[in-house]
Structures are given as structure tokens and as C-alpha cells.
Design a binder for these strands. Structure first.
Length: 202
DNA sequence: ATGTCGATTTGCT
DNA sequence: GCAAATCGACATA
């Protein structure tokens, strides 16, 4: 598990958000060390959100609030927020300072610390452990209060590089989930899913 | 297999 | 006050 201790270098998070989503994050490993428990999963599903133009993004029109603040930080930190009164969501902030773009991580394939994930989720079945943005946060112990804004090259929450190159043919682009309100931005194919894996949300 | 609905808190209008 | 980048329980078929 040496591989999982590696960190994606900070500068890779400054690339174009679509490249970060498809070339850097898909197939990489989201790792967490929370409560003395190590857990990790391979990233199988992501969504791109762009500050400025994108009506589905919390930072639409560069709206800067307490919640969206960390999206304006330099790429390479975590934007973690709370929705629906009970679920957390984990995003990777990308781009240079004041370009509030982020990639939502929507699903993982469990790789390490599986018994910890099962304990946190009160559930055994692997395909339900981390296949959804709320589920993966619960499985990895991710919470806004503890982790919002955290540096992803540190030792609490980090991302280890993919061990194999993901080819374009293995990636499917679809509309994003749960953003029907975003008008013309609702049907953009900004969700990217790894093919040939059961570990995606539905 | 598919649909509807409640949970529950945060942040903005 | 209301809607939200969701999930799981329960209903009906």
C-alpha cells in the first residue's frame, strides 16, 4: 500500500478543470486518515463545476460567501459542504486563486479500510459503501467542520495518483445529477464515469 | 422494478 | 421561509 501514500502534486490541480477531472482524478485514489483509521477508494465518477458561467455551481457569477470561500483558494484543497440536512459532499478545488472551479467526487471503488467503511456506514455490501457523494463522505469519515479547506497534499485527506493510465474510451460523459434547476447548464455532459465498473452512483 | 416521500440543517432571498 | 450537487425506507405492481 506504498502507492496510496503518494500525493498528487499541487500543480496538477491547476490544470484545466476538465483535464483534472478526466486525466488526473479518474482512476486516482482518494485516501483518508480520520480517527486513526485509514480508508481509501479508487475514483470512478466525478462532476465538473465552474465558477462564473455555470448556473449549477455554488460560485455561479463568482458569488463569494462563507460557504463558497474555499473554492476561491488555489487548486489542491477540499471544498466540503453539507446538503439536504444530512449529507456531506466532497469536492477537489482546482485552478489558480480566484478561479472558483471544483470537481465533485461522486463515487469510489473501496480499496483499503473496507471494514472501517462498513462500520461507519452500518452496512456490509461493497456496492453501496461508496457509490454516491454522500455515501463516500460517510465511509471516509469526511465532515465539513473537520475538513473543509484542507490541503490535499497533507496527511489527513489526500489523493494518490492512478497506477494505470485511463484511456478516453474508458470514460463516459453524461449530464450531472441533481442540478435540474440550472437551466441550460443542467444538461451539459460534465459528469465523467469510468466504464466497466459496478462502483458508480445510480 | 419503479415511485414517492421524509429526514434535517445550512445559507441565502 | 425555502430549496438544496442525497439517501434509504416503504409502498405499490
Amino acid at each position: 500500500m506504498e502507492q496510496l501514500q503518494q500525493k498528487i502534486p499541487q500543480e496538477q490541480y491547476l490544470l484545466d478543470p476538465f483535464r483534472v477531472a478526466t486525466e488526473v482524478l479518474l482512476g486516482a485514489y482518494l485516501c483518508s486518515n480520520v480517527d486513526e483509521e485509514f480508508t481509501a477508494g479508487k475514483i470512478t465518477e466525478v462532476e465538473v463545476y465552474l465558477g462564473g458561467e455555470d448556473k449549477a455551481c455554488h460560485a455561479y457569477q463568482f458569488k463569494r460567501t462563507k460557504r463558497t470561500e474555499v473554492m476561491f483558494h488555489q487548486g489542491g484543497c477540499a471544498y466540503i459542504f453539507f446538503v439536504y440536512g444530512m449529507h456531506h459532499q466532497f469536492c477537489v478545488v482546482t485552478s489558480p486563486i480566484d478561479s472558483p472551479n471544483a470537481i465533485l467526487i461522486r463515487a469510489l471503488e473501496p480499496v483499503a479500510g473496507i471494514s472501517t467503511m462498513q462500520k461507519r456506514r452500518h452496512l456490509q455490501q461493497l456496492t453501496l459503501l461508496t457509490t454516491g457523494p454522500g455515501r463516500l463522505c460517510q465511509a471516509l469519515g469526511i465532515q465539513t467542520k473537520l475538513h473543509n479547506g484542507i490541503d490535499l497534499t497533507g496527511n489527513t485527506l489526500w489523493i494518490a495518483p492512478a497506477t494505470t493510465v485511463i484511456k478516453t474510451e474508458q470514460i463516459k460523459a453524461t449530464p450531472r445529477i441533481g442540478v435540474g434547476y440550472a437551466q441550460e447548464y443542467a444538461h451539459k455532459n460534465w459528469r465523467f464515469v469510468l466504464q466497466n465498473t459496478p462502483f458508480v452512483s445510480k
